[in-house]
Simulated assay, not measured.
Amino acid sequence: MRSHPEFSGTGTLSWNTRMKQYLGRGARIKFEEAAIREVTYRPFCTQVGYMAAELNDRQGELPLVFPTTHHRNFGIVLTAPASHFEFTPFFAAHVPDLHLLDTGQFFPRWTYEKSEPSDGGLDFGSPDESSTDEWGFRRVDNISDGILALYCGTVGDQVTKDDIFFYVYGLLHDPAYRETYASDLKKMLPHIPTPDTRERFEQLASAGRRLADLHVDYEAVDPYPLDVKLKSSASASDCETWRVSKMKWGKKKDSETGKNVDDRTTIIYSPKVTIAGIPEDAERYMLGSRSALAWIIDRYQVKADKASGIVNDPNDWCDEHDDPTYIVDLIKRVTTVAVETMKIVDSLG
């Protein structure tokens, strides 16, 4: 989803140190259309953000990672050491929110550096990826030549830097790795061992590529065949049938206590729609504090921010794109992502 929140609030903002300095200087902040970016706000939730140094506090290195809307990048998001939740890797191809999973860190495939004129003109260099592009940037590979040489010496000269990057993503999902280093992962960033064999390297690199594809292109995977049940008074052709307010899990009786507990195989989409048949494996795929589908339930609801009055309504995306069943289809697709992710993870043992 790419939402466009409606603003009807107080017109206030967060007065950080930088904003107070601007105020003291009487500086004017101009709207820049180029600062509008797609942001990976939470898992499976893309929103529109505004990326400008004047209004975004502590951007860190992000301006070098996504310098313009023309520059493609992707990377691995990690829960930070001392996170409240289990160590979690995720993949993002847009500007990542600081709290995408929990307060964490982002490791991009590339960074970009602005080229400076030299000897009266730009140094265009050789015609490879390090040369200056039409927007005046050079792409810098974040996999160093030294690391490439180390891996080539270990598993063969045919290894590429992309292979190494996806090997890391695959390894971070390996249950044996996460169990062995569980204590360390709570205190520090992961250390990546050099693979022992080419076969193991290829297995993890292939797994990492497949996982990255699933996690980034979740809107393009085949929908899982869930059972979408409509009340007799509801019509599938009526757009109002598919409008969502706030989803929740179904309920069932606990066999031991007799109490009502969440039924993670069923989502109450609305008073008119129930989605059933969710496989148990979908709940195994955890992203920080929630399963993949629990993130959908949490994020895809109509919610107003009390302080600003900003309303986040996921139905807007459906209306704008004439796709009333988008959220139902998203639930099906994220179910596929969760199930396929766990198949890949289980294969690594």
Rank of each mutant, 00 (worst) to 15 (best):
K343L: 06
P127A: 09
P127I: 06
Q47K: 08
D217S: 13
W249M: 01
K343N: 14
P5G: 04
P279C: 06
T68F: 08
K231N: 05
A220R: 13
I275G: 04
G309P: 01
W110F: 13
K229V: 14
Y50R: 07
Q203T: 10
K251E: 13
G24H: 09
L23V: 05
D281S: 15
R139F: 02
E219A: 08
L98D: 10
P175E: 05
D305T: 11
N260S: 15
E179M: 13
D145Y: 03
N142K: 08
D133A: 09
E134N: 09
G26C: 04
E134D: 13
W242D: 01
H70T: 08
H70R: 13
F137Y: 15
Q21S: 11
A212T: 14
A52N: 12
D227E: 05
E199T: 14
R72V: 00
T180G: 04
D174C: 15
P193V: 06
D162V: 09
D123E: 10
A82W: 09
S131E: 02
Y112G: 03
W110I: 02
D102G: 09
A236V: 05
D263E: 14
E340R: 15
W15C: 03
D281I: 15
G288N: 14
T266R: 14
T17Q: 09
L171N: 06
D316M: 06
S118R: 11
R2Y: 02
L230G: 01
D102H: 11
D217G: 11
C45S: 07
S308D: 00
D262F: 04
Y112S: 02
I310W: 03
T79R: 07
G277C: 08
K253M: 02
L150A: 09
A207I: 07
G125A: 00
Y326Q: 02
V244S: 01
A182H: 15
T325S: 13
Y177V: 11
D263F: 06
T335H: 08
D217E: 10
Y169Q: 05
K186T: 15
L211D: 02
